[in-house]
């Protein structure tokens, strides 16, 4: 009897997309997608989502390893904190970033006074917002994999005389690669669709901070057809990324 809830679940995911496809104005599609504003938004989205995925990997892999391997109680509390961006409404996340890095935030004020650097309303702010919301996806999938794998290979490597950094590079990372792949794809997808934290923290300006989701929202105010076309573009990009990065996931092989 699993097929009834399974069918409902599938319908919930697929039918809205079908609705979108049914409403798309295919005759105007090329014209709508190649407007300057759309192309600027697409370019900005791809660049920022790639950058924030790289940041997620560079910072998230060490964090996941620390969280998975540590036995102290404090670290267990930290694990819950890392999940916060998953449950925070993105707008609240954006506000939190503003209170930290905005002109009146304590770090933002320091940056402004000492270095003359202001983060809000810049592309950097977009990348920070995306990294903030996407990082937990990477950390959670890696941490799960690490716990599943245990640390016996690492201990063996260590008894054979490998230094910690060599163990991390030659044993831990290769073991993690599949989980790293899916975690990175999840993070990229989340960064690509990021809306609330971006518009709150970074604002919305063409070519600087207006990513594809923000442009969709912007277009929806004036021209729903255009918004639908852009949403379709966002879906295509997401599907392509999933297909390229995780071909095995599409074929159902582990």
């Amino acid at each position: 009897m699993l097929w009834i809830p399974a069918g409902l679940a599938l319908a919930l995911v697929v039918l809205p997309v079908v609705g979108l496809l049914a409403r798309t104005d295919y005759a105007r599609l090329p014209e709508l997608l190649t407007s300057g504003a759309s192309l600027n938004a697409l370019r900005l989205s791809l660049v920022t989502a790639v950058l924030s995925t790289v940041l997620c990997v560079l910072l998230g892999v060490p964090l996941a390893v620390v969280l998975a391997r540590s036995r102290s109680r404090g670290v267990r509390v930290l694990r819950a904190v890392v999940l916060l961006p998953l449950v925070l409404p993105p707008v609240v996340g954006g506000l939190a970033l503003l209170f930290l890095l905005g002109r009146n935030g304590f770090l933002g004020y320091l940056l402004d006074v000492t270095a003359g650097v202001r983060i809000p309303f810049t592309t950097t702010a977009v990348v920070i917002a995306q990294t903030f919301v996407a990082m937990p996806f990477l950390v959670v999938s890696l941490e799960g994999a690490l716990r599943g794998a245990g640390d016996r290979y690492e201990r063996v490597a260590a008894t054979l005389g490998a230094r910690p950094w060599t163990v991390f590079r030659r044993v831990t990372v290769p073991l993690l690669l599949p989980a790293l792949g899916s975690g990175a794809v999840l993070s990229f997808a989340r960064a690509l669709g990021e809306f609330g934290a971006t518009i709150t923290f970074a604002g919305s300006l063409e070519g600087v901070t207006r990513t594809l989701p923000l442009e969709v929202y912007n277009q929806a105010e004036a021209d729903v057809d255009s918004a639908v076309a852009l949403a379709l573009l966002l879906i295509v990009v997401a599907v392509v990324v999933i297909a390229v990065a995780r071909p095995r996931a599409l074929e159902g092989r582990p």
Binding site: G102, P120, F121, I199, G203, L205
Partner: peptide, 20 residues
């Protein structure tokens, strides 16, 4: 030459209120 073009007027007001 605005720093941001917000989606509604309350968002503009908030950026001023927050001092950004």
């Amino acid at each position: 030459a605005p720093a941001s073009e917000e989606q509604d007027v309350k968002a503009v007001l908030n950026k001023v209120r927050l001092g950004e």
